[in-house]
Design a protein around this nucleic acid. Structure first.
Length: 425
RNA sequence: GUGGUCAUAGCUCAAUGGUAGAGCCCCAGAUUGUGGUUCUGGUUGUUGCGGGUUCGAGUCCCGUUGACCACCCCA
């Protein structure tokens, strides 16, 4: 008889995370860099539903992803799934709304995605990923723009070409080969996956799975083959000084079935971690998902927060950048010390002023010893403490970094702070 | 989904089968209104959960849940 697993209410479900303030600050930092760079490239933000009909993923994402869906039947008997990725949603949205926008569209999103898998390092059941897509442009310039964006995103976290590499490849190259070798089209998808996997499994096994084309595939992989398209991408990135970050590598094919052209993946140079990002061209997906037969070339990639966070931790320069951001994220500007409870009302009136000016200001909610209040101010990261007490209508303004303190008439306080806080920031 | 390792206080970890501890964190004090250091005191556990062996189990055995690692697969 089936029994539900015992659930420990003190723990998160397997593969899910709590974001305590520290983790939230890290996440904010990652999202901020993502948004900043994507917008720098002229991308605009959008989003879709977390829950979609399971059918959307069964249709065209390929069987790989369908077996790992976080799916269930809702109370209305609908088969639904937590989104494992955003691209099918994007394709649906574009198919429905493409006429409302001038082409090409450059859209980005930061969805939380879900997969029902056993978790391990770099792979949870939930993660956030930046998705950047260009829709409605078939020219190779769009591929170049997208790869350039991927590189600049990594650079924004403080990574150098010594830390990361974007390996670029082209599915068309392999499809041409399969066509030449007269491989039936029905087997293409399967063979592409074998090539994709060749790096991770034994040569013997790959040879067996490839059969007749094994010899030519191995010789291409070994010789570090390339194509005109890939050379053009590399040349363009060289002109922009980003070529150290990229490497043509036909061994990259990617597992998802919907890719049609240039594909790429970003890795840590040490090769310790899973892929940092991955994507490519999917020119047929929108047409396949649209009943109205909208055909639209498209390409995009995704970068996940989990592996990225792991690499940030391993690269000192990147780690320092994150630490600096995290240190300031939850800090307050001003802590108001209420030394005499008779001044509480005056203090609160002043705090309201601070907050309306945009300062982060805090104070003790209940009567508290002065020493304790200063300790709290310190722990909250306040740069300035303002003491309301016997000196009223003046207040004592103390710079918590230097320890300097001076009396300021309450009337002049805002002007005084505008000056001193701008100096110390 | 398969296999291996592990599970002790909020955190990091101790405890030859014999009364569960330390450090950190947190809280309170060191005479009246000034933080970071110091000193003193204090709270915290059904040893993940459920069975079993034993006079006695944190320790040995079985199951279960979870974590980590590898496979599978890959965003």
């Amino acid at each position: 008889m089936w029994r539900a697993p015992a659930i420990n209410r003190m723990q998160t479900l397997p593969g899910f995370r709590d974001f305590l303030p520290r983790q939230c600050a890290e996440r904010n930092y990652i999202f901020a860099r993502w948004r900043e760079v994507a917008r720098r490239y002229g991308f605009v933000e959008w989003d879709g539903p977390v829950l979609e009909p399971t059918e959307l993923y069964k249709k065209k994402s390929g069987d790989e992803i369908v077996g790992q869906l976080f799916n269930f039947t809702d109370k209305g008997e609908r088969e639904v799934a937590m989104r494992p990725e955003l691209t099918p949603t994007l394709a649906r949205v574009i198919a429905a709304h493409e006429r409302e926008f001038k082409k090409p569209l450059k859209w980005f999103s930061i969805p939380q995605c879900f997969r029902y898998e056993k978790q391990q390092r770099g792979r949870l059941r939930e993660h956030f990923q930046l998705n950047c897509d260009i829709i409605g442009e078939s020219s190779l310039e769009a591929d170049i723009e997208l790869i350039g964006l991927c590189v600049d995103l990594l650079r924004a976290f403080g990574f150098t070409a010594k830390d990361v590499v974007v390996r670029i490849s082209d599915r068309e190259f392999w499809i041409d080969l399969l066509r030449e070798q007269k491989v039936p089209e029905a087997r293409w998808s399967e063979l592409l996956q074998v090539i994709d996997k060749s790096e991770r499994q034994s040569r013997e096994k790959t040879a067996e799975q490839l059969g007749a084309i094994a010899k030519s595939v191995f010789s291409i992989l070994k010789s570090g083959g390339t194509s005109e398209k890939l050379d053009r991408i590399a040349a363009s990135l060289r002109q922009r000084g980003l070529d150290d970050f990229v490497k043509v590598d036909l061994g990259i094919v990617r597992g998802l079935a919907y890719y049609t052209g240039v594909v790429f993946e970003a890795f840590d140079r040490a090769g310790k971690l899973r892929a940092l990002a991955g994507g490519g061209r999917y020119d047929n997906l929108i047409e396949q998902l649209s009943d109205a037969a909208v055909s639209m070339p498209a390409l995009g990639f995704a970068m996940g927060d989990v592996v990225l966070g792991e690499l940030i931790n391993e690269v000192p320069a990147a780690r320092e950048k994150l630490e600096a951001a995290v240190r300031t994220d939850n800090k307050i500007d001003i802590f108001v010390v209420i030394a005499k409870e008779e001044r509480r009302a005056d203090a609160l009136a002043q705090i309201q002023q601070f907050r309306e000016r945009g300062y982060r200001a805090d104070y003790p909610l209940v009567p508290t010893k002065v020493a304790k209040q200063f300790q709290t101010a310190e722990q909250l990261g306040a740069r300035i403490a303002i003491l309301f007490g016997d000196e009223w209508p003046s207040v004592a303004v103390k710079n918590l970094m230097t320890g300097e303190q001076q009396l300021v008439p309450n009337q002049e306080l805002l002007a005084y702070l505008a000056h001193s806080l701008s100096l110390s920031s």
